[in-house]
């Protein structure tokens, strides 16, 4: 059972206190977008073996959403961070790069 640090209230929350929200940093496509872009936004998910950036809500605690960088194989958590960002903070990217040198560019 995972344990994630909620950056909003500072609690190390157990998985049973959290609600999952799927992939993070999706770009919303609204009216006027192409069918392809809209399909990507709604349905296309990478679901990689390895580093995932995902949304979690501290549902049984402060109620806030936050984002987590996690390894879907080893369960290593590279860090959790505020939902109000468009990409992970540099220190988390650095930590991912140290573990996955080949991924440093794309992260």
């Amino acid at each position: 059972m995972l344990s994630l640090h909620c950056p909003c209230c500072g609690i190390d929350a157990a998985e049973i206190e959290l609600a999952p929200g799927g992939e993070a940093h999706l770009k919303r496509e609204g009216p006027g977008s192409s069918d392809a872009d809209f399909e990507t936004y709604l349905f296309t998910r990478d679901n990689p073996r390895g580093v995932v950036l995902e949304r979690w809500r501290h549902a049984y605690g402060c109620g806030k959403w936050f984002l987590a960088a996690r390894d879907s194989v080893t369960m290593e958590v590279y860090g959790t961070y505020a939902a109000q960002t468009h990409s992970p903070p540099q220190e988390i990217l650095d930590r991912i790069a140290r573990r996955h040198p080949d991924r440093a560019q794309s992260a």
Partner: peptide, 11 residues
Amino acid sequence: HAHMEDWLQCE
């Protein structure tokens, strides 16, 4: 309520 908060907090 969670749906509303999701859009307010994350979008």
